[in-house]
Structures are given as C-alpha cells and as structure tokens.
Write a protein that binds this DNA or RNA. Sequence first.
DNA 1: CGGGTTCTTGACTAGTTTCAAGCAAAGTGG
DNA 2: CCACTTTGCTTGAAACTAGTCAAGAACCCG
Lengths: 252, 252
Amino acid sequence: MIVGNGRPNGQYTPCEMCPLRKRPSLREFTPDELGFVKEFKADELHVEAGASFLQQGTANQHLYTVLSGWAFRYKMLDDGRRQILNYALPADMVGLQGTLMHEMEHSVEALTPLTLCVFPRNKLYDLYSRCPSLAFDITWLAAREEQLIDEQLVSLGRRSALERTAFLLLHLFARAEEAGMVKNGTIAFPFTQQHLADTLGMSLVHTNKTLKRLLQSKAIRWKDRLFEMVNRPALVAIAGDDVSPRTPRPFI
Amino acid sequence: MIVGNGRPNGQYTPCEMCPLRKRPSLREFTPDELGFVKEFKADELHVEAGASFLQQGTANQHLYTVLSGWAFRYKMLDDGRRQILNYALPADMVGLQGTLMHEMEHSVEALTPLTLCVFPRNKLYDLYSRCPSLAFDITWLAAREEQLIDEQLVSLGRRSALERTAFLLLHLFARAEEAGMVKNGTIAFPFTQQHLADTLGMSLVHTNKTLKRLLQSKAIRWKDRLFEMVNRPALVAIAGDDVSPRTPRPFI
DNA sequence: CGGGTTCTTGACTAGTTTCAAGCAAAGTGG
DNA sequence: CCACTTTGCTTGAAACTAGTCAAGAACCCG
C-alpha cells in the first residue's frame, strides 16, 4: 500500500536526474542548491491510489514533494462529510503544515499511483540555516498554496454552482497544463464525480446535473477518464472569471 | 486616510517596547532576533477604518505586521460580490503573498483603526540569509494562515448555515482571546452583519435570520458592538465541532 | 459473468436568495 | 438643535437553488 524504497534499492530518482527539472515552468537550481536538495532528500515513496499517506490528527515526520501522480488534501467531519481542499501535482509540496505544527489538520490521499520525494522534518531547519534561497522557495510554495485556496474559497462562498464547477475545471486543467500533462487539449482525468462534489461543496446529484449542463454547452468533453478542453473561452464565459496566469515557480 | 510616521517622528513603537512581546501566547525573541527585527522594521503605518491598504491586482513593496486593530483579507468579483477570506489581528502578518509574487490576488482592509509595522520587501531576502530562525517563523506564519483558511473552506463547503455561523463566532472569539482582547467573556466586536455574510458566503438576509436563531439559543449575546460568549459548550454543540486549540506561536 | 462502484434521472423537500418594506441608530448640515 | 440622510438591522413572502430519496443503467474489476 505504501512502500518506501530505502536509499540504495528500488527505483530511486537522483536529484540530478529529476524529470521535473526539465519543465519550463520550473526554475533551475544553482549547483549549490542542487547539492542541498540532494542531501535533503532521504527516500522515495510509492503510494497506491486511494491510500491516505498523511492523516489529520497525527504528527508527521516528513515533508514530501510529488514526483509523479495526483494527490489531494482533505478534511473529514465526524459524521463523514468530506471537504477536499486542494490537489497536488508533480512539483507540489505536501506535509509542510504537519512538519511545522504539532499535528496535521488535514489528510492527504493519493488519487492515482503516486511517487513522492521524502524530506525528513529534522533536516528542515538545517536547510533554512544553510541555504536561504531554498528556504525562500519553501515560503514561496506555502504562499502559493494559500493563494489557490483563497480562490477556492471565493468559489464556494460567492460563485454559483455552474460558475464554480466551470472554474474548478479551468483550474485543474491549467495546473495539469503547467505540469506538462496535457496532450492535444486532453488530459487523463482521475476524478470521480464524488471527488468534484467534495471539492465544490455540492451534493453528488447536483454536481452530476451541473456537469451535464457544462457538457451540453460543448465547451468541454469528459468521457472514459479523459477530459478535453474544447472551447476554453466558452468555459471562461460560463465561469465568469479566468484563472490567474501561471508564472515561473520554484520547487524542491 | 493612510499615514506613515517616518522613522523619527510620530508614535513609533521601538521593537524593544513592542506591546505584543508581553503576550503569553507569543514566543520570545533571542537578543539577536530582536536586533534583526528592529533593523527589518522600516516604519509604522496608521490606517483608518474602512480603508484598503493593499489592493488586489497591484504589487506591494511592503510586508506588514498588525500591531493593533482588526483587518480583513478579501477578494472581489467583477460584479461586486465580495468574499472575505480571513481576519488579521495583532501579531498577524499580512502582505506576504504580494511580496513574494508579482502582484496581490486579494485586498486587505482595515476593519478598525489599524497600526501596522512596515517591513520593506527588499530586506526580506536579507532576513532569510542572516536569520534563519526568523525565516522559519515566517514560513510558520504562512502555514498557519493556510490552516485557518482550510477550516473556513470546510465551513463553506460542508457545514450548514447554522453550524457555519456558530463556528465562525467560535473562531473569531478564540482568536480575539489569543490576542488578549477578551474581558469578562466579552469583546468589542467591530463587524457588521454584512461582514459576517461575506465571510460565511451567505446572503445578508439569511445571515441575519441565522444569527437570530443563535441569539435565541442564549449561547451568545451581541448588542451595541459588544459580543459576549455566554455558553461556549452550547455554541460548540451547535457548530458540531470545536476550533483547534491554540499553541504558542511566533510573530515578527 | 457476477458484484460492486459510479453515473444518471425524476420527484419531492429543504434550504437559501431575492425582493420589498419598515425601523432604529448614527451622522450631517443648515 | 432639529430635519434629513445614510447605514445597518429586521421581517415576511415569493422564487429559486440545491439536497435527499429512490431506482435503474452503465461501467469496471476480478
């Protein structure tokens, strides 16, 4: 279910050969930084789809960066209601909150098979001491994460079901695009309607009916776990707002 | 409307005499850290209630810490809908996102007359280089801010209007308590119902009716801009959940 | 080829917004 | 100091949005 490689064995990706470094949206490391990151990385973890590798209410000893796959952060209420807070894609960091605070206030689940870089909590302060530029990047990532949630909060609070759904699809598509996962305007879409409903704060039935309206608008296509952006401007018009443009970003 | 003191004149609070440092919930600086913070602080700003001192869509040159008063972060949609994202109280930092990114994606408005410490953006990297413990604290503050929004997202997505309203009041009261603003279970409450509505993602009318139900439960009292927590356990029962306990926290 | 999960749909119900109007308190200017 | 305006609060009714219930269809996995 959750498998660590141990440093010497398994498919371990050395930082010099990190596939993320080739992505144009990501900034390049200096040789020094690369050395620090290499030293910071302690292991690689494989998580199967559906497994929660971070649990609300527990402390976590590690910080992770997604190397491949989709994950999502979520919170559960006592009676089983679930709210998905955000999604994590390759180059996104998860677990920072739980590393800094005493315990996690959310859980993280793998949406697809997931590969993670593992950074031990106790080396984080060392990184801050010895490589301020990377410390700066970690803060940058935390601030960006907050920005994404802010936008989601606006959706839940002030956008109609239709606007909100269209906006979420724009958001997910843009992020998949940034992560280089889009081919011919199409991405592998690992979500069930329940995932979207729990993200949008809507019931499953209402989500289904809202999606149907979007599909009828011909702006998008979604079938067989594939999502196609057919008419982006039309979707933007329905959402009433566009997602903010991506800028070059750091990662660790 | 917005008045800076300039370093030598006006009511300028030297960091050694910062009133926040006396608060038990805040961790103490080492002498070194105090020196850095003192050097980092460039000015003090007074903002009158109702003024937005940070605007979405603009770059901001400074980072602020609230010294006294309430502020709130919010986003506006084109047609005037407003979503309040979070509130800032003394010892909270605002403007970090705008300092790291190219431009702000939210605005910040003073809810009461506000005093702010001003930290120039261009000294931030210097702080990261020279004082990693404070860099760590800034990251901590960013992570905590995210935690607060996460909780708010759960409210908007998955809690009923009554639960959500009760929870917000618990949240605001707890934070006011942490900031030492509570006397005899009572705080000066600077909100209009419109503020609460825009925080809760509800219409003004429905917010009014929901508050009426809460007042009728006798768990709280709210009159003449004073809020009294009469029966906290009862309010927790209505909210269906309690706010997470406060832990000692840093500030800058 | 079952058996579970996911999707779809219609009917009904509950929750929420909108509209409209009136009131109270506070602030403004002659 | 008193009309006048503005802002915030309150209430009821009507319209709309979204949730719940229920059942069947489609899909996926072993």
